[in-house]
Simulated scan of single mutants.
Amino acid sequence: MARDVRSVVEVRRSRRRTATVSAYRDGDRTIIAIPARFSHAQEQEWVAKMLARLEDKERRRHPSDDELLARARELSERYLEGRARPTSVRWSANQGRRWGSCTLVDGSIRISTRVQGMPSWVIDYVLLHELAHLLHPGHGPEFWRLLEGYPRTDRARGFLDGVAYRQEAPAPDLPPEHAAGRPTPSLAGDGARRAPAGAAG
């Protein structure tokens, strides 16, 4: 879900910044950097704009189940000629090491909650991967041909491989003097084993 817009907003004016405005989250704070020359009215205008942009970006990274279904149908129309027709698409916390799964009998798709917060183009790839499974259950040549039209297939597969690797990689051995106070590594979800490239389902 999108972050609460009522979090603390900190506006930072910079003399080195002449025209650009940037915004990012830092814990519970939202930092908005603006040129020092901006008037109070310009500051208010740009704070409102940047908060809206952040909220939109975060919403796209945390779509609801209904939004997932709508997006899946759009992707099917665009890349699969509308042939994949999911009956439901929802987030699921019990996908094991998979990024997603589908049931051919009823056309339902489940997307791992580990995907939440990832870039929208990665979410699109995982959705498209499961949509393709509604047409081809396995991972043979015909299956992968269905994904050739999506321009970020290779990039998304690489992204997911990187996430899986990071989740399974052991913590580096540190000398005893550095071990004290070291944060305990945590795994997102239960991705303790690397998933095969592109193995969304």
Rank of each mutant, 00 (worst) to 15 (best):
Ala195Ser: 15
Phe159Asn: 04
Arg182Glu: 12
Ala169Ile: 00
Pro170Met: 01
Arg157Leu: 02
Ala180Phe: 13
Glu168Val: 04
Ala179Val: 04
Arg182Cys: 05
Pro176Glu: 05
Gly181His: 06
Arg193Ala: 07
Ala188Ser: 13
Ala188Phe: 08
Asp190Ile: 12
Ala192Pro: 00
Ala199Lys: 06
Ala197Trp: 15
Arg182His: 08
Leu160His: 10
Arg166Ile: 08
Leu160Asn: 10
Phe159Leu: 08
Ser186Glu: 15
Gly181Asn: 02
Tyr165Phe: 14
Pro196Cys: 04
Pro176Lys: 00
Glu168Trp: 03
Gly189Cys: 07
His178Ser: 12
Arg193Ile: 07
Gly162Glu: 11
Arg166Val: 09
Gln167His: 02
Ala179Pro: 06
Arg193Leu: 11
Ala192Lys: 07
Pro185Arg: 15
Ala169His: 10
Val163Arg: 09
Gly162Trp: 07
Pro170Ser: 04
Ala169Met: 13
Leu187Gly: 08
Arg194Ala: 14
Ala164Phe: 03
Gly191Ser: 06
Arg166Pro: 01
Ala164Lys: 03
Ala164Asn: 07
Ser186His: 14
Ala188Tyr: 11
Gly181Tyr: 01
Gly198Met: 09
Pro185Ile: 08
Arg182Lys: 14
Pro175Val: 00
Pro170Cys: 06
Phe159Gly: 02
Gly158His: 06
Ala164Gly: 13
Gly191Lys: 07
Phe159Pro: 07
Gly191Trp: 12
Gly189Ile: 05
Ala195His: 11
Asp190Ser: 14
Ala188Arg: 12
Arg157Asn: 08
Thr184Gln: 15
Gly181Ile: 03
Glu177Met: 05
Gly162Asn: 09
Leu187Ile: 15
Leu187Ser: 09
